[in-house]
């Protein structure tokens, strides 16, 4: 059976702590390595930060919605915002150099893309953006289940 957990919260930074804690709870009984759990947690926080800042323009009245699906072989996380979206195809082709020390921002998508097995974006028909993050559970030999 697939477990599905949904959390919706206003676009305020203080709620990110709750997301981090929830991530930890959801992954507690999943067979991820500690490193993988850290990577998932970091990536979900990044996706939520992007949704708040770039999607909802930090407007507290606009919510961020997260949906976690615990599947036998992986964790699937979807993060929704209600903003105008952005040209992710163009962005993905020209991801800025994350080691550029002169950049204050622009590392979030690179981090998510590096840490997750699947990162994709979907424009929603009624406006807003859905970010899909997936991490596979690996066997002891490093292969995906």
């Amino acid at each position: 059976m697939t477990e599905r957990i949904v959390l919706e919260f206003p676009s305020e930074y203080s709620y990110l702590n709750m997301v981090d804690l929830l991530c930890g709870e959801i992954m507690a009984d999943m067979n991820f390595t500690r490193e993988a759990k850290n990577e998932i947690s970091i990536s979900v926080i990044e996706a939520c930060t992007n949704a708040m800042e770039h999607g909802n323009q930090c407007c507290p009245e606009m919510n961020v919605r997260t949906v976690f699906e615990k599947l036998p072989d992986r964790l699937l996380v979807e993060v929704f915002d209600y903003g105008r979206g952005f040209d992710f195809k163009e962005y993905m082709q020209h991801i800025p150099d994350p080691s550029d020390i002169h950049k204050l921002r622009g590392r979030g998508i690179f981090i998510m893309n590096s840490m997750m097995d699947v990162l994709s974006f979907e424009m929603l028909p009624d406006g807003g953006m859905k970010v899909i993050l997936e991490k596979m559970i690996q066997n002891n030999d490093g292969k995906n289940n």
Partner: peptide
């Protein structure tokens, strides 16, 4: 520091430069 996001890392790099 409980956790940091990419913007937090940006804050550190900005201070560094």
């Amino acid at each position: 520091v409980n956790w940091v996001n990419s913007t937090g890392i940006g804050i550190l790099t900005s201070a560094f430069t």
